[in-house]
Each structure stands twice: as structure tokens, then as C-alpha cells.
Design a binder for these strands. Structure first.
Length: 584
RNA sequence: GCCACCUUAGCUCAGGGGUAGAGCACACCCAUGGUAAGGGUGGGGUCCCGAGUUCAAUUCUCGGAGGUGGCUCCA
């Protein structure tokens, strides 16, 4: 194993220092795990009866500083199982870890903080590695406190997790904090308010966003683009109602697994209805509505439509995780030997879509090739031979297209493997947007059939595809990606027209009419504010173009255009301006 | 759902057991302004909701709702 870099060691040792400091203040504390992370470190604690909140951070940090100043040597020591158990007689978490390590046939290593005359100040079970002494840790800070289940299992005890960060010097800490502040400025929830894109109402309910006129323009611009892309590849659009009898999901197999996560609807009859949480079962009924021939395949049914899921409230987050989500869904019904070609076509659309948004860049996303967990075959429905085929189809598609993919075992859906496209938000959290899933189970459940060349009935395969994923989540990611400054083709308002004074009003009106006829989204900004203030407000609202109309423009017929973020004007003809609004 | 924190004007926030504050936004008036805040006046509040303690609660306590950071979940 290669040696982790110094920053990881710093974080890891800082985590032990925090752990030791907490022990000085809370002698009865028990400890879970305490690793480094991509940006910092954490340590899980069981505080027993003691109450701990972020008000305790200062006290803990003070003790940490004391430990750093003492410059304890950090020394590794191997213990036998017996010795290790004796060292932590009352700590059920430590004992569980010790037994587990021994079961794996590995050795038990401990790291000590050693002071003067070899006195051991603190010791913990740990695989290492660490810095040589606590004095090398540098600058640190406890950042947040959260509940975290022991071993990530919600049926087990909930521990208290303290998160921290550590840097070589104060400049490192400062740079990190500046980075967070910059990210906070791009937060889609903040920009959604500032740019007047969407809102929430306590009366409507959590996780149910309301889109304003500008937000809906943004949404429908994305939706129209997707529709156009799909139709150019032979996808046909359909429409389904938003509620269904529960019988549909009993047949699909989703009822048992998800019935508690659905919104239930009661009508006059005894039949139980639910808000649809997905579209695939409905779409199977369109496939099944008439006799299908192999000549009809692949049949590609697309629809951008809203689904409703009763997500746990603690999970909701702005537009990233909502209860009403609009999926740009496609279901392709095809033969097994058509999967690969169809999948290639899907990747084409995904690539084209994200490339035109400048998001198709290696460090901005990665692809999860989500396959079965080989240890838990019982979790997956369908013929293992088909699974093998599907997984290898997806892998070869990922390879052929040079996708930055990782094979992740255990992440497959219960009905089939998938390619999930994960994109980052402003603070590096990853969100699944595009997805391509293979499904052998649903055609079986709904007994879907087509007639093959020999006149025999055969079962199709189903592909589930989403390009943007949920439009709500997609918008959250692109709002942060562009920090609200959308390219002109996407911007809800593409230009403001500013008369220098009220004498230029009539000319502005004519200009706006001409531009609107060409499909441009332009608004008039009257002269009740000073010109300087209007320019400033256009920049604040991230409007791509501000067009200033004064005597010069009235006379020449040209446009004086101030582009968003630029400090100089550009003079152009009306036709040149129209061209600047396109997708380019 | 679980753990911690937060909730004062449309927005961003200050304040504090005894008549509620600012800036921006909004309305009206003046100014007709050539490129990142022109000037004046004014309206705006169930201090998230409910209960308790108190002579008195926006402020303290408890409960609830909503939000934030995590955990769990994610068809």
C-alpha cells in the first residue's frame, strides 16, 4: 500500500487528537470510528447521558490545542486480542471492532500519544498511519456535529459524529473558508430566491417547489431542448395520468417495497389510488395496448412528467431532493440483441446534452456502472444469465465511449444493472442526473410480448432512460454550475432594453417587438431608475444582454449591447444580436 | 424518520422580560439621466404556531411546524 499524502496523515492524527480531547472533557465517552475524509476528518462518539452541542466546540478545541502544544509522539503498538479486550472492557463498539479484525485474521494495531518518560497519554485502536507527533498537526477546527448510526445501520445505536478540518497553517484554513463562502454564493436555493426562479410555501408543503414565471421559462427551455433531442433520435412522446390504482404497482412488484413511500389517494369507490412515483408501469400499458411485431421494435416512449414520492423529510433539500419530481423519462422496449445499439444512442444524447451545457468534463462528473452485489443474489430478480449479459453490455458501452466509469457492486436496482451519471454541486456533493437502466423484470411481470419473425411470442427487454434525471435536481445543478449566469439560449430573460431617457421609449418598443417576433425573451426596463442603476441591476439579475437605446441608436438602427460580466459595450446589428441568442 | 442548530418586514440581518430597528425592495413625488446604487417622502410586523411560567413573553420553558448541516433511504 502506498503512503497516503501528508494532508491525509494530518487529518487522521487530528481526528485522534479530537478524540483524546473529548476524552479529557467526557471521561466516560465511548468511541466509534474516526477516519479522514476527502476534505477533513470525523470521529463518532457515544456520549451516554451527556448532552453535547456545537457550543462545546470551543472547549474541545482548547484541549486539542493543548495536546498539539505538548507534541506527544505518535507511536504504533501491536496487541494480542486478550490485551486489546482488556484495554477496553466496557466499550462495546471497540470490542466489536476487535473481534471483527481478529475474525479477518488481521493483527491489532494501536496508536499511542506518548509524553515525557514514555508515559502514554492516549491510545486507540487504529490501522494508521499517522504523523510522527501531535505537534505536526498545525491548524484545525471542529466544523459540525451530526448524528450517525453505528456501522451506518439505522437499526443500531445513533452516535454523535464530530467533523473537523486540519491544515498546515492558517492560510490553508483561510483558503478553505473562502472556498466555502464562494460556494455559498452559488447555492441554488439562494440564487433561486435572488433570481426569482422558484419558491416554497408552508401551506403547500415541504419538498413541493413552486416555479415562478422565470423559473418555468428555464424549466421549459431545458424540457423543450430535451424533447427536440429525443425526437430527432426517433423517440415518441406519450402522456399518462398522475394517479393510478395500486394494482399497477402490485403487478410491477413495487408495492411491497415502496407502499409506505407513496402518497395515497382516496376516491369515492373502494379502489385504492396512489400518486405515481414512477412512469415505467404506466408505459408498459401503452406497449401492451395492442399486438406488437418485431418490426415495431425498438419502441421508444418518452415523456417529461411529474412523479410524487413521500421522501423522508430530513432528506429534502432545495430542488435537489423534492417530493414532486419531474422526470424526463424514456422507456425503450427492444430485443436483447438491440440493447447495445440503443444504449449507444442514449449515450449520444447524454453526451450532446451535457456537452452543450459545458458539463461534459472529466472532473465534473463520473459514471457508476452499478452492478449486483455478488454476496447477496437474493436481492435481485430475474435470470442471472440475463444479468451477466446486461452488465457486460453496459460495461462495453461505457468502454466504447470512454466514459469515466467505476464498477460499483451492490448499486444495481433490483430489476437490473445501470449506468448512473453523477454530477457535482457547488460544494462537491454528488447528484445522480442521467441514468440508463436495463430491466428484465418488468416485461416479465406485465407479460409483455411481441411476435417475432417466426410468428412466435417473445418477451422484450425494457430500458429506462433519463437524460436530465429530475428537472428539479438538474436545475439545482446547473444553477450552481453557472452561478446563475446562464448562456443566452437558456436564460429566462435574455435581454433588457434600456432607453437612455423617456424620449427613446417608442424606439425601444419597436425594437422589442422585432426581437420578440424572432423568439427572443426580452424585457423593457423603463427610465425611472438612473441608467447606471439599471446597468447594475441587469448584472445583478445575470441578464445576458443589456441593450442601451439613445440618440445614437435611434439614428443608426444598430444596437449597443453590454454583455453580462463585461465592462465594455459592443455595437452590433439586430441580426447579429439575434444570432447571439442561439445555442451556438 | 434520527442527531444538532436556526426561524424578527418581500429579501439580508441588528435587537431584546415592559410602545419593534436598519439597508435593500415596494408606493408616491422630484430629477431626463450615455453605462455597476440621483434625491425626497411614505406604506409595510401574529417577532413561525400553540401551551406554560410571569403583573407583563417576540425574548424564558415545553410541544409542534418549517429550514439548515449530517446519518439512514433513494424505484
Amino acid at each position: 500500500m502506498c503512503q497516503p499524502d501528508i494532508e491525509l496523515l494530518r487529518r487522521h492524527t487530528a481526528s485522534h487528537i479530537m478524540s483524546a480531547a473529548v476524552g479529557m472533557l467526557f471521561p466516560d465517552v465511548k468511541r466509534g470510528v474516526g477516519p479522514w475524509t476527502e476534505t477533513g476528518f470525523y470521529q463518532d462518539f457515544d456520549f451516554g447521558e451527556a448532552e453535547v452541542s456545537d457550543k462545546d466546540f470551543k472547549k474541545i478545541e482548547k484541549k486539542m490545542r493543548w495536546i498539539v502544544n505538548k507534541d506527544f509522539k505518535v507511536q504504533k503498538r501491536m496487541l494480542s486480542g486478550e490485551e486489546a479486550r482488556a484495554a477496553f472492557p466496557n466499550d462495546e463498539y471497540k470490542l466489536e471492532l476487535i473481534d471483527e479484525i481478529l475474525d479477518r485474521g488481521e493483527e491489532l494495531s494501536f496508536y499511542d500519544f506518548v509524553g515525557e518518560e514514555g508515559r502514554v497519554f492516549y491510545t486507540d485502536l487504529c490501522a494508521g498511519p499517522h504523523l510522527e507527533s501531535t505537534g505536526q498537526v498545525g491548524v484545525f477546527k471542529i466544523t459540525k456535529l451530526a448524528g450517525a448510526y453505528w456501522r451506518g445501520d439505522e437499526n443500531k445505536a445513533q452516535l454523535t459524529r464530530l467533523y473537523g478540518i486540519a491544515f498546515a497553517d492558517a492560510e490553508g484554513l483561510e483558503a478553505y473558508q473562502t472556498m466555502l463562502e464562494e460556494a455559498a454564493k452559488r447555492d441554488h436555493r439562494k440564487l433561486g430566491k435572488e433570481l426569482d426562479l422558484f419558491t416554497f410555501s408552508e401551506l403547500v408543503g415541504p419538498g413541493l417547489p413552486l416555479f415562478t414565471p422565470k423559473g418555468e421559462l428555464l424549466r421549459s427551455t431545458v424540457g423543450d431542448y430535451l424533447k427536440q433531442l429525443k425526437e430527432s433520435k426517433g423517440y415518441q412522446h406519450v402522456w399518462i395520468p398522475h394517479i393510478t390504482k395500486k394494482d399497477l404497482y402490485e403487478t410491477s412488484g413495487h408495492w411491497d417495497k415502496y407502499k409506505d413511500d407513496l402518497f395515497h389517494v382516496k376516491g369515492k369507490s373502494d379502489a385504492e389510488f396512489v400518486m405515481k412515483p414512477m412512469n415505467c408501469p404506466h408505459h408498459t400499458q401503452i406497449f401492451a395496448s395492442k399486438m406488437r411485431s418485431y418490426r415495431d421494435l425498438p419502441l421508444r416512449l418518452a415523456e417529461t412528467t411529474t412523479c410524487y414520492r413521500d421522501e423522508q423529510q430530513g432528506e429534502l433539500l432545495g430542488l435537489s431532493r423534492v417530493r414532486s419530481l419531474t422526470v424526463d423519462d424514456t422507456h425503450i422496449f427492444c430485443r436483447i440483441d438491440q440493447i447495445q445499439e440503443e444504449a449507444e444512442g442514449v449515450i449520444d444524447i447524454i453526451r450532446q446534452f451535457y456537452t452543450s451545457l459545458n458539463m461534459w468534463e472529466g472532473d465534473n462528473f463520473w459514471v457508476s456502472l452499478s452492478v449486483r452485489d455478488p454476496e447477496k443474489p437474493e436481492k435481485y430478480l430475474g435470470d442471472p444469465a440475463n444479468w451477466d449479459k446486461a452488465e457486460s453490455f453496459l460495461e462495453s458501452v461505457a468502454k466504447n465511449n470512454d466514459l469515466p466509469y467505476k464498477r460499483i457492486e451492490g448499486e444495481a436496482a433490483f430489476y437490473g444493472p445501470k449506468l448512473d451519471f453523477q454530477f457535482k454541486d457547488a460544494i462537491g456533493r454528488e447528484w445522480q442526473l442521467a441514468t440508463l437502466q436495463i430491466d428484465f423484470v418488468m416485461p416479465e411481470r406485465f407479460k409483455l410480448e411481441y411476435i417475432n419473425e417466426e410468428g412466435q411470442k417473445e418477451r422484450p427487454v425494457m430500458l429506462h432512460i433519463a437524460i436530465a434525471g429530475s428537472l428539479e435536481r438538474f436545475l439545482s445543478v446547473i444553477i450552481e454550475h453557472y452561478a446563475g449566469a446562464f448562456p443566452a439560449w437558456l436564460a429566462p430573460v435574455q435581454a433588457h432594453v434600456l432607453p437612455v431617457n423617456s424620449a427613446h421609449e417608442a424606439h425601444c418598443e419597436k425594437l422589442i417587438e422585432t426581437l420578440k417576433e424572432a423568439g427572443a425573451r426580452v424585457e423593457y426596463y423603463d427610465s425611472s431608475d438612473s441608467l447606471g442603476k439599471r446597468i447594475r441591476n441587469c448584472q445583478k439579475a445575470r441578464v445576458p444582454f443589456a441593450i442601451v437605446v439613445g440618440d445614437k441608436e435611434v439614428e443608426s438602427g444598430n444596437l449597443t449591447v453590454r454583455k453580462y460580466g463585461e465592462e465594455k459595450d459592443q455595437v452590433m446589428t439586430v441580426d447579429e444580436f439575434k444570432a447571439a441568442l442561439g445555442r451556438g
